[in-house]
């Protein structure tokens, strides 16, 4: 049973409080009426089934009723992060160890600048 951090309640809670709602970041086509059958079918029916990092939509169903996203490793079941709707994941298939945070990026830039000065 998962132990899930609700980004709204800001607490770890038992999986029993939550419902999984499938793959995250499935955007509804902005103009469905001009969308091709194929594109509409992809939106409706086709989902990824990756081995490794996966972004999922969950709802704190018997808690705050908020929907949010989970980045989960489908092999180890480790939950790498939870984040609110509208936010971007830090851990992705491209960045399994986590994207550099803004602070880290700023520091890296500062170091680069220093090195530039030295050069």
């Amino acid at each position: 049973m998962f132990h899930i951090y609700c980004p709204y309640c800001e607490e770890l809670r038992e999986e029993e409080e939550f419902h999984p709602k499938g793959q995250a970041h499935i955007a509804r086509p902005t103009d469905p009426d001009t969308c091709s059958d194929e594109a509409w079918g992809d939106y409706l029916f086709f989902r990824d089934n990756p081995r490794g990092i996966h972004h999922e939509l969950w709802v704190h169903a018997v808690g705050c009723r908020k929907f949010f996203n989970i980045t989960r490793n489908t092999v180890s079941y480790e939950i790498l992060e939870t984040y609110k709707i509208g936010e971007e994941p830090r851990f992705t298939a491209e960045h399994p160890a986590g994207k550099p945070t803004e602070q880290a990026a700023a520091e890296a830039e500062a170091v680069a600048r220093q090195e530039g000065v030295k050069a």
Binding site: L57, V59, F67
Partner: peptide, 13 residues
């Protein structure tokens, strides 16, 4: 209830 919340929170906030 969950369906209404889903559409409101994820598609039409």
């Amino acid at each position: 209830m969950e369906w209404l919340e889903l559409w409101h929170q994820t598609e039409w906030p």
